[in-house]
Amino acid sequence: MRIATLGPAGTFSELAACEFGRQLPNYTLAFYPALARVLKAVPQDADLAVVPIENIVEGMVSPVIDTFVKRPLEIVGELSIPVRFSLVANHQRPEKIYAQFVAQGQCSECLSRYDVPIMNTASNSEALQLLQQSREPAAAVVPEHCLGDLSFAHIEHDITDYAHNETRFVAVREPHAGRKAPQAGVHYKTSLLIIDDTDHPGLLVEHLQVFAAYRVNLTSLVSRPTGQKFGQYHFYLECEGHLEDSAIRAALTLIQLRNKVTVLGSYPSAG
C-alpha cells in the first residue's frame, strides 16, 4: 500500500500517515512538497493520500476542500494528531529564531517574549536543521516528536498558544464503485459537497432546514467561492451518521432536487 503525504520527514502529516499505515499489513510512504501534489498522486503514484483537513485554531484547510470540488476523492478515515511544539536553542540568549510560518502563528505568545528576528523556513525539519548548523546563538520552533534524544542548551516544552491544539487528518483514495456497509457499534461521519449551480436567495437556509427537519447533526459547514463571481459559493459539510442512515438519505434526496450533491464518503469518526 503506497501512502502519499506532505513532506519532508518530521511533519505532523508524517505522524498521521504512519498512524493510518499501522492499520495496514504493509505500506510505503512518499513525501510531496505541497497538498495539491499529495492529492494528485492518487491513484497513479499512491493508493492513499493523508492530508490535514482541519486545525482547532486555524479552521478548515481550504486547499484540500477546493481540490475536492475540482476532483472528488473518497474519504475513508480520519484521525486527530495533537500539535505540540518546543522551542530549542543552542544558547540561553538566542539572537534569532527559525520557525516554519504555520508553527510561528501557533506559538506567537511564546515567540513574542523574544525580541529577536523570526527567520521563516519552508518546514519544521528545516528549522531544526538550520539551528543545528548555526554557529551563532539561535533557536528553533520544533515539533516535540522530532526532539528524540537531541540535547540543547535551552528548551521550552509545549509552547503552543492553545493547550489542546489538534489537527484532524483524513485518508483519501480514488472513489470505488461500492462503499462498505456500516458496522454495528461504530460512530460514523459523512462528508459531502453541495455545488452551487442554481444560486437563489435563501439557498443555504433551505438546506440547513432540511437537515434540521430530519434531525441530521452537522459537525462542519464551510463555504468556498466558486471562482465564477462574487456571492456564489460551494459548501462542504460533515454530519454525524452513515450515508445509509435513512435520515441522511432522505435529507440528501430533497437537497438534490435543487443542487448537485457529491458524497465524499462515510467513515469512522475520530471522535
Rank of each mutant, 00 (worst) to 15 (best):
3 I>F: 06
5 T>S: 14
5 T>Y: 10
6 L>K: 06
7 G>Q: 01
8 P>I: 10
11 T>K: 05
11 T>Q: 14
13 S>F: 04
15 L>D: 02
19 E>G: 14
20 F>N: 04
24 L>T: 13
28 T>Y: 13
28 T>S: 14
30 A>H: 15
32 Y>K: 03
32 Y>D: 05
35 L>A: 07
38 V>F: 12
38 V>D: 08
39 L>M: 14
40 K>Q: 10
41 A>F: 13
41 A>L: 11
43 P>D: 07
46 A>K: 07
50 V>C: 08
55 N>A: 11
56 I>H: 15
58 E>P: 07
60 M>W: 07
62 S>L: 13
65 I>L: 15
68 F>R: 02
78 E>L: 00
82 P>E: 12
83 V>Y: 01
84 R>M: 11
86 S>M: 10
90 N>W: 04
91 H>N: 14
92 Q>G: 12
95 E>K: 08
97 I>W: 00
97 I>H: 02
98 Y>N: 06
99 A>P: 06
104 Q>V: 00
106 Q>G: 01
112 S>G: 08
117 P>H: 00
118 I>R: 05
128 L>S: 03
128 L>E: 01
132 Q>N: 08
134 S>A: 14
137 P>M: 05
139 A>N: 04
139 A>Y: 02
145 H>W: 09
145 H>C: 03
146 C>W: 04
147 L>S: 01
148 G>S: 11
152 F>G: 00
153 A>G: 15
157 H>I: 06
157 H>L: 10
167 T>C: 11
167 T>R: 08
173 R>M: 15
173 R>K: 15
174 E>M: 14
174 E>L: 10
175 P>F: 03
175 P>I: 04
175 P>V: 00
175 P>Q: 05
179 R>T: 09
180 K>C: 07
189 K>Q: 09
189 K>V: 11
194 I>V: 05
194 I>D: 02
195 I>N: 04
197 D>W: 02
201 P>K: 13
205 V>T: 13
205 V>C: 08
211 F>H: 02
211 F>M: 01
213 A>T: 09
213 A>W: 06
213 A>E: 05
214 Y>N: 00
215 R>M: 05
215 R>P: 00
221 L>T: 06
221 L>C: 07
223 S>V: 00
226 T>S: 06
229 K>N: 12
230 F>Y: 12
233 Y>V: 09
236 Y>P: 05
236 Y>D: 05
237 L>D: 03
240 E>P: 05
242 H>I: 12
247 A>H: 12
252 L>R: 01
253 T>A: 11
256 Q>A: 15
256 Q>G: 14
260 K>N: 09
263 V>A: 10
264 L>G: 03
268 P>C: 04
269 S>R: 11
271 G>F: 00
